[in-house]
Design a protein around this nucleic acid. Structure first.
Lengths: 343, 343
DNA sequence: ATGAAAGCGCTAACAG
DNA sequence: CTGTTAGCGCTTTCAT
């Protein structure tokens, strides 16, 4: 059995209420008493039982994060940011993976509701009404999805698309394929909106393909569709799909970017790992996770106050231009050089 | 306020204990009574308050997963598997990201201990003594790390390395560079062990480099070291590093696999997304996550029983050999700028 | 400034 | 089979 508050109280020669106060509201206890209590607590390694505490306070100290797929680098990045911020606030993160399924998503939110103070819901696929229902149960902060009157953290998808289209136009492309993301994805809609708004002004003709699931695998056959479309450039829904496209294009012997330009979105670690042939529209994913938790904490601290905050984070076009230190001549010639020479 | 057990009891015309039993131990309640209770509970949307329950049962229904880095695809895959298995057992997953820091790791395990029934600790970087101490507090299952008398799920790193070395030897490589992983990583040690055991028999000379952090970024400069070493092949610690290596090699104008063979480990989604130039030793990461939770659940159900179980999952060499359907002629003709036009 | 006492919602004996 | 009762460990009035 763990150390209880009673033991601490007994050892410190005070009542349990004093111990409770010394820990939670130090100002209400005389300094000398408080110090004694704290010392004993420390010595015994006492930590309040959170279940008991939450039973009475109604707060759990936990925040939930729901994502469509943890293995998607976009979401694991958001998750990382959220976790980091939560930890700073002494909050624990509950994870739920909805497996890209709106029903599972709603179910998970409902199930989590009772064990967390609030939920960060990423790229919610569920409908608006369902979202309202969920929000009625538990404080909710949306990421990458917006819904009237709901606090949310958005990545500026439409503007990212604008940047991408202008970039391609500047490169001389006149016919561009767009691989649409999941039907129920907010950002997929935003991308489309941004595309339709920007393309005409740039004199770019758009071939719309999809919707597709946001995966590498979906990018494979999509690449063939792109080839068939006669487009000279592809705007993929995200980095994962872009990589799938590039993979298949490579197999087809298509040279990038000479014969085909590929643009990804999200700027996840994976995209950074690819060859310069992939241009991407990077979004501050980790920051989004942090921001979402921040918003949630605010919401919990001042209920009702920030209910309509929408924080939009900018996206930025990243045209890969890797610069690396030159190799010393000896190495370039194939002669092994001492390791020191390379720093 | 949420629905309490009392309301259900009142509406169903029974006592609270009957309600409690109807939900937890259905067999102890007459079928007709049980059905009535369950119906009312359903109607009211009643779910037991887990804090209250855990206060008395001492169990939380939560399991913790600690990883060095959620954004590392290897760990997000393990996490995904763990989450899936946990959900099947109605358990919730608590996530903690130790940021590759042994101290944070120990701290997180300690902090989590009181709020979970057990912890799945992935690729623990902490020392053996510290591990023992942690295990004393909370049931622990290790992934990708072994420690005497501790249940763990291992991915057969040494054997994976053997496969990789034999593969390279068969390809004719005689001088191979090895990029070592984090110093405190169990699998990094295993890889080294497997390498040293297999290399001589294959007539392969090994150039040992590192240790390195297990990241894409570390692979970049490592590639230059490899070039300087005069090796014709690289065994990278994991897929992330392998991609870093390939990236830099490409920049250096090295043709893969003609001039340099690159082998990665883990077989994460990212590696599957790269060109055929990367050979990888795939490990069943998601399965490992599932297995770890499974072991933990067993451990919780039968305390002491399975304390020394070590489940080793096989690794398997994957030599990329993508086969894709041929393009119909019409489409092939639709490629905007055929290769011929460039030469 | 501190203590005593009343529960938070639930489960687990213990009686019927 | 079902009801009654006693807490789980903690916070929080309400006294003092």
């Amino acid at each position: 059995m763990a150390v209880t508050i009673h033991e601490v109280a007994r050892r410190a020669g005070v009542s349990v209420s004093t111990v409770s106060r010394a820990l939670a509201v130090p100002d209400l206890v005389r300094a000398s008493t408080r110090d004694r209590v704290l010392a004993v607590a420390e010595e015994l390694g006492y930590h309040p039982n959170r279940a008991a505490r939450s039973l009475i306070t109604g707060r759990t100290g936990n925040i939930g994060v729901v994502v469509p797929d943890v293995a998607n680098p976009f979401f694991s990045a958001v998750l990382k940011g959220a976790h980091a911020r939560a930890r700073e606030a002494q909050q624990v993160v509950f994870l739920a993976d909805a497996a890209e399924d709106p029903r599972v998503e709603a179910e998970l939110v409902a199930a989590m509701g009772k064990q967390v103070d609030g939920i960060v819901l990423c790229s919610a696929r569920m409908g608006d009404e369902e979202l309202e229902r969920s929000a009625g149960t538990t404080p909710l902060v949306l990421v990458n999805r917006c819904s009237p009157g709901r606090p949310s953290v958005l990545l500026d998808a439409a503007d990212g698309m604008r940047q991408a289209v202008e970039h391609l136009a500047a490169l001389g492309h006149r016919r561009v394929a767009h691989l649409r993301g999941p039907e129920r994805s907010w950002s997929a809609g935003e991308r489309l909106r941004g595309l339709r708004a920007a393309a005409p002004a740039c004199g770019v003709e758009v071939v719309e393909l999809g919707p597709f699931p946001p995966t590498f695998e979906a990018g494979l056959p999509a690449a063939d569709l792109v080839l068939a479309s006669g487009a000279t450039a592809v705007l993929a829904y995200n980095d994962l799909m872009a990589l799938g496209v590039m993979n298949r294009l490579a197999v087809r012997g298509v040279v990038m970017p000479a014969e085909m330009s590929v643009v990804g979105f999200d700027g996840t670690q994976v995209s950074a790992m690819t060859t310069p042939a992939l241009t991407t529209v990077a979004a501050p994913t980790e920051t989004a996770g942090r921001a979402a938790v921040e918003l949630l904490l605010d919401l919990l601290a001042h209920p009702g106050r920030h209910s309509d905050v929408v924080r939009t984070l900018p996206s930025q076009l990243v045209v890969r231009a890797t610069t690396v230190p030159p190799l010393p001549h000896a190495v370039r010639a194939g002669v092994p050089a001492p390791l020191e020479a390379l720093s």
